[in-house]
Structure formats: structure tokens, C-alpha cells
Amino acid sequence: MIAQLILATLTGLLLLGIHRKVIARIQRRPGPPVWQEILHMLKFSFKSTWIPATASTVLFRGVVLVAIGIWTAAFFVMLTGGSLLVIFGIYMLHKIVEHGFGLSSGSPYGKFGGVRSVISAASEIPLFVSVAAIAIFTRSFDISDIVAYQQVHGPLMFIAFPAAVAMYIVILSKMPFGPFSIVESKELVSGYKTEHFGIWRAGLEVCNGLKTTVLLATFLMVFVGQLPILWLGAGMLLLVVSLSFACALTPMLSPFDSVTVQTLVTGLMLCYGAVLFIGVRA
């Protein structure tokens, strides 16, 4: 299982590299090679490291461990077909990781990144509505049950299309360079990860790789169904390319606009959920 874990991390980092490459090609730049993110992680891990003199040391280190730990847990939940709620609980708790990264160093840029991360917590609500919408169809939150349901009734992508769109937007808000990634916008230097360099940054990269794999694979499993490993890879690649198009063609929104758009999506999803609920009751 350790092998799978490391493979998942590298896959995620490779997908992030492809993400960067595609964005660059759309914007008519050459862009970095696709394995740049993997090299990035290795490069940071070899570098000489220290912790800023003003930092809260325990939190500064601990939050990196927590970041890797929660996504490892999410990976196992996904592998064993556990509850979807746990994965999305972990997805929401990633906010804490961003917040902890930002605040623990004492850097003003990190602090603003952290505060923005808290403000943009509104983006997580559509997620729960879409999870609930899925549960209305499948009567269970377990990923294994959801997969079994799709083998009988066909992919949920067609049955619950708005839920798929909402979850796509949620994944989009976690991708770098996207319209909603206000936590790491360039006016804040690197946002919440400004002061984490060297091996701590490398740890964050590991977490990012795992996170990307888990989110994309969960999306495919929940909305398309169980796929053979090659098709899963192809689907993730397709998803990343489409996300890159979305990221490359939209400007980064201001924090206020970002929260407004996400709140609107939440409102629409609530309406959809209510319609479904009444439909089931009737």
C-alpha cells in the first residue's frame, strides 16, 4: 500500500505538471516540462532549510504532517470504498491546513492568505449539497455502494448532472491558477505558502499531489463508476486538461467576487437539492 501511496503522489504531481503545461500552451508560452512539479518537490526536499525566527515552531512543522496525514487518510477511504462524507470532511478540513500554513510563520503575506482561505470557505457548501443529491439517488454514502448503483443504473454523471457540475467547480477552486484560487494570488507573494520553503514546502507538494489524485479519482468513481486503471488514468488526464482550459481562460477573481460566485452556485445547488428532495417525497 505504501507503493500505491507513492504512486498516487507522483501521479498527482505529474497531473499538476500537465496542468501547468496545458495552461502555458493555451497562453502561447512554452511552459515548463510536464514532470516539473515532481522535480520541484525533489528540489525543495534537498534544499537547506530553516524556520523563520518569528514562527510558531510546533505549528509550523505540525501542520505539514497534518496536511500529508489527512490526505493519506482520504486516499485510504477512497481505496477501500468508505464513506464519501469522510472524504469531503477531509476536503473541508484542508482549509485548516491552509490557515495553519499562513498564520504560523508570522509573515503578513501568509496571514492574508490564511484569512482569505477562511473567507472562501463558502465554496465548500455546494459540495455537501451535491453529496446529499447523490445520496438521494443511491440511498448510501459509501463509495462502494455508489459504484454498485452505477453498475445497475448507468453513470450518475447523466442522472445527476447539476451535482457533477457543482463538484467540478469545487475541484476547480482547489486547482492552482484557477479563477477561485485567491489564497495564493500573486499580490500575496505565494499566499499561505510564502514562508514554507525547503523540506516543508516539499511536504506541502507531496500533500498537493495526493490531494489532486484523490479528488480527481473520487470524481470519476462517483460520477462515472468503477473503471479499469488505464481508463481511470485517461479520465483523470481528460479532467485535468478540461480544468486547465477553465483555468487558462478565466481571470483570477477578486476575493469578493470569488465568494459571491461561489455563494450563487451554492444557492442554485440548494434549489436543485430541494427539487430532488420534493421529487423523491412525491
Binding site: 505504501i2 501511496l5 526536499s45 534537498f46 534544499k47 537547506s48 532549510t49 530553516w50 524556520i51 523563520p52 525566527a53 518569528t54 514562527a55 512543522r61 505539514v64 504532517l65 497534518v66 496536511a67 500529508i68 496525514g69 493519506t72 510563520s105 508570522g106 509573515s107 503578513p108 503575506y109 501568509g110 507573494v189 510564502t194 514562508e195 525547503g198 523540506i199 516539499a202 511536504g203 507531496v206
Partner: peptide, 24 residues
């Protein structure tokens, strides 16, 4: 796993530098 990753990085990391203030 997190301990393993960070421990591995700590092991092959270059020498530690002196503490400094954050980027301002």
C-alpha cells in the same frame, strides 16, 4: 506516512541555515 516523508527529507536535506525574519 507523513513522519516517513518528512523524516526522509530531513535526512537528505542540506545543512540547516541560520534563522531569519520572514519575507517583508
Amino acid at each position: 506516512f507523513p513522519v516517513f516523508i518528512i523524516g526522509l527529507f530531513l535526512w537528505w536535506m542540506a545543512k540547516e541555515g541560520t534563522e531569519d525574519i520572514p519575507f517583508i
